[in-house]
Amino acid sequence: MNLPIPFIVLLAVISLAGTGFYCLLFTRNLIKVVVALQLIVKGVVLAFVLAGHLQQNESLAQTMAITVIVADTIVAVIGLSLAVQIRQHTGSLDLKALSKLKR
């Protein structure tokens, strides 16, 4: 087996995003949901790196990757803080308990 590096990175991107989405579809745990979002965004970061490499424009890719990481951290922090508050109010991190709003 002699795969080119960009192809391996692409596989990594797909598997990261795939794992993340799989997790979002099947987990019932709030913390895992936030982790799943992180996984997907890590895939995004890798995708930018890959794209920068393909286009010989690594510096721009780097800038964008860092920006994404910053924004994503903020989202994760908010998500976790919401999770903490939800745990305090409902005593559970189960998504099933978090489906009062429907229909």
Partner: peptide, 17 residues
Amino acid sequence: LRNTQTGLLNWNVLGIL
């Protein structure tokens, strides 16, 4: 149709996918 709004996050994400 209202049953499609399950309120469960997993289903909501499935909608997007």
